[in-house]
């Protein structure tokens, strides 16, 4: 079984790059999206991060603005 051809990797950015991305934009113009489970979110998350567990993502995409940069973790 080979995996690579199934996936187009998303661009990865470091926390420094993510921080700069957010700092360069107006408040709220970069979305930090937490796709973990609620209990993991409660245990600690990035300030202002939106919780949208991976299992719900496809049904709740309308809650996200497709025009804004989204940093997923």
């Amino acid at each position: 079984m080979k995996w690579m051809q199934f996936f187009t990797p998303v661009t990865s950015i470091t926390w420094e790059e993510a921080n700069k991305l957010a700092a360069d934009k107006a408040e709220g113009d970069v979305v930090f999206l937490d796709v973990r489970q609620p209990k993991e979110y409660e245990g600690g998350h990035l300030p202002g991060a939106k919780l949208l567990p991976l299992g719900d993502l496809d049904k709740r995409l309308a809650e996200l603005d497709a025009e804004k940069p989204i940093v997923v973790y």
């Binding site: 990865s12 950015i13 996200l64 997923v72």
Partner: peptide, 21 residues
């Protein structure tokens, strides 16, 4: 999943929240 629905500026935070913390 996001890119397939028109989200073009999606980034994966390298190292996840552990790296950030």
């Amino acid at each position: 999943m996001l890119a397939g629905k028109g989200f073009s500026k999606v980034y994966n935070l390298s190292g996840g929240i552990k790296a950030w913390g």
